[in-house]
């Protein structure tokens, strides 16, 4: 555990919050092209995060089991256009190299020409593969990668002056559908986001991604809210989680059940194909725990009080907002 500095130095940080990527850095939130270089360390009131591209934490086994079960139930969460084979291999090798470099005690990669040996001690796994031979790794390169990392994976092809979502394994989507969006342009996928068109945020992000040189890696964060610790809030499973959003409003345990959902998205121009790899890592923490860090409690209160209505609507948090703001201010008045 890390200690919080300042007035609350004596109070210990709840387990797991030290590395939580708390995304709010100002008292007002607006969409921006908030892209920064990957691996840049960030300090937070509870500790820090950001030194790695791929993050392994205590949820590793559980999240990978959950992903495997989702893929078994619904294979449409994985997609790969036929022309994206080389990009899928590029993504796999890039990520395995990252893991071997960043977790040398648990992961190992040895390569000789196109042949490689991968070992993952967390899974007691050893695989000998051949780059370009899809049958040499279980499930093919993209599905295999999805079994090694907690991040969701999206692959974008660059052509005709645009980026196209032409592949990925996305099991933990936040209210979108991989099967629906696959084959679309980046700009089409982001069509429904309010304000970003006037402010040219998405267009600028698009131009930025188009210009990234192979090997470059950047990241950004995004956030919303989810009821209970549920990673899979995709369009496909809406019938399972949709009603919890109204039901929780009457629940006195709202601060325990409502989670801040933070996505750390890495944007990587792959070295050999130039395709853009999006890694989307989702972190969930209940407000009840976040509020134990006084600076975070104050920041959340300020941001949620100020957030314009259209943004609150798009993020799906308008209904929770009044009660959450009251509770963060220490004046929760809902009957117990």
């Amino acid at each position: 555990m890390t200690a919080v500095t300042g007035a609350d130095a004596a109070r210990p940080v709840p387990e797991g919050l030290e590395r939580f990527p708390f995304p709010l850095t100002e008292d007002a939130y607006r969409y921006s092209t908030n892209v920064e270089p990957a691996r840049k360390p960030v300090r937070t009131a509870a500790g820090g995060w950001g030194t790695r591209i791929i993050d392994i934490d205590g949820h590793y086994d559980g999240e990978l089991r959950e992903r495997a079960a989702i893929l078994q139930r619904d294979p449409s969460r994985m997609a790969l256009a036929p022309h994206m084979g080389p990009a899928a291999w590029d993504a796999l090798m890039y990520c395995l190299e990252c893991l071997a470099r960043e977790y040398p005690d648990r992961m190992g990669l040895v390569r000789e020409g196109r042949r490689f040996a991968w070992s993952n001690r967390l899974q007691d796994l050893r695989v000998d593969g051949v780059i370009g031979d899809d049958d040499s790794v279980p499930g093919g390169p993209l599905t295999f990668l999805a079994g090694q990392i907690q991040e969701d994976i999206a692959l974008l092809d660059k052509r005709e002056g645009a980026l196209w979502l032409d592949g990925g394994v996305v099991t933990f989507a936040s209210n979108w559908s991989m099967a629906f969006d696959v084959g679309m342009r980046f700009l089409e996928i982001h069509g429904p986001v309010p304000r970003v068109h006037e402010e040219r945020v998405i267009t600028r992000a698009h131009d930025f991604l188009m210009r990234m040189q192979p090997g470059e890696a950047y990241r950004r964060t995004n956030w919303s809210m989810t009821v209970d610790r549920r990673l899979d809030v995709s369009t496909e499973t809406y019938p399972e989680w949709g009603s919890s959003r109204t039901e929780v409003l009457e629940d006195p345990r709202l601060p325990q059940r409502l989670h801040l959902r933070v996505e750390v998205q890495h944007l990587i121009a792959l070295p050999h194909t130039g395709a853009v790899l999006f890694l989307i890592r989702t972190y969930l923490e209940p407000f009840e725990r976040l509020a134990q860090i006084p600076q975070w409690r104050a920041r959340l209160h300020a941001v949620l009080s100020e957030l314009p209505q259209d943004m609150a609507d798009y993020k799906g948090l308008a209904r929770y907002r009044p009660r959450l703001v009251q509770w963060l201010a220490g004046e929760d008045t809902v009957r117990r």
Binding site: H83, P86, A87, D157, R159, Q213, P214, G215, T273, G274
Partner: peptide
């Protein structure tokens, strides 16, 4: 420089 890509193949 590192290799710079301005004449990339079209995967499709």
């Amino acid at each position: 420089s590192r290799p710079r890509s301005q004449f990339a193949p079209v995967a499709q």
